[in-house]
Simulated scan of single mutants.
Amino acid sequence: MNKFFLISFLFLSQLGWSQYSEKEDVQNLIEEFFYAFHDQDSTALREFAHPEIKMHSVTIDAKGNTMLATKEYTAFLTAIASIPITTKFEEKLHGFRININGVIANVSTPYSFFVNDELSHCGVNTFQLIKFKGEWKIIYLVDTRSKLGCE
């Protein structure tokens, strides 16, 4: 009987560790994405994404109107690489909410965006990932951008 409990415990412990490790891997990918983003490293940013990645931004203007914009990932990479070196920008993440189900994951990260140390806007990033050939890749990124309610 004790052997059964020991084997069950070890099996369940391994499941818990496996899920934790996957969450760690996913969070590390998102953190590395933002390191590359801040370094304007379009080559690294391309590596984090699946070739068929989709991007959207939901903008909420000062009057509370909502607009949806679609951006090609290559255009995003070009825009990041073309930011002048004299412009300081930083996206500060305020936590991670990670859900994994097999080979797909969802990551939500509230953020504040600063340009030259001044708050520009805030919002939430939502990443959809797929485990493709043993590696997590971003397949979809949607973010909200608002000047309302930022702290």
Rank of each mutant, 00 (worst) to 15 (best):
F89K: 15
F89V: 09
F89H: 12
E90C: 13
E90L: 14
E91G: 00
E91Y: 07
E91F: 01
E91Q: 02
K92A: 12
K92H: 14
K92V: 12
K92F: 11
L93K: 00
L93R: 11
H94R: 15
H94A: 15
G95F: 02
G95T: 12
G95H: 03
G95L: 07
F96I: 01
F96G: 01
R97Y: 10
R97N: 14
R97K: 13
I98G: 00
I98A: 00
N99P: 14
N99T: 14
N99W: 15
I100E: 10
I100C: 09
G102V: 05
G102A: 09
G102Y: 05
G102W: 03
G102K: 05
V103Q: 06
A105V: 03
A105P: 03
A105F: 07
N106Q: 15
N106M: 13
V107D: 04
S108W: 10
T109S: 01
T109P: 02
T109D: 06
T109Y: 00
T109G: 05
T109I: 01
P110I: 08
P110C: 04
P110A: 05
P110H: 04
P110K: 05
Y111N: 01
Y111I: 09
S112L: 14
F113W: 07
F113R: 09
F114T: 14
F114R: 13
F114C: 12
V115A: 12
V115G: 15
N116G: 07
D117R: 02
E118I: 11
E118T: 02
E118V: 13
L119E: 00
L119C: 01
S120G: 09
S120D: 11
S120F: 13
S120A: 13
H121N: 07
H121V: 03
H121T: 09
C122I: 05
G123Q: 07
G123V: 00
G123C: 04
V124K: 10
V124P: 10
N125P: 15
N125E: 13
N125F: 11
N125K: 14
T126P: 11
T126M: 06
T126I: 08
F127H: 01
Q128Y: 09
L129H: 03
L129Q: 00
I130D: 08
I130M: 06
I130W: 10
K131E: 00
F132R: 01
F132I: 00
F132L: 06
F132A: 06
F132D: 10
K133D: 06
E135H: 09
E135Y: 06
E135D: 11
E135C: 05
W136N: 03
W136R: 04
K137S: 08
K137F: 06
I138N: 05
I138H: 13
I139K: 08
Y140N: 15
Y140V: 00
Y140S: 10
Y140R: 04
L141W: 12
L141P: 05
L141D: 04
L141G: 04
L141N: 03
V142C: 10
V142Q: 14
V142H: 15
V142P: 15
D143P: 07
T144L: 09
T144C: 11
R145E: 07
R145L: 04
R145P: 12
R145G: 01
S146V: 03
S146Y: 02
S146M: 07
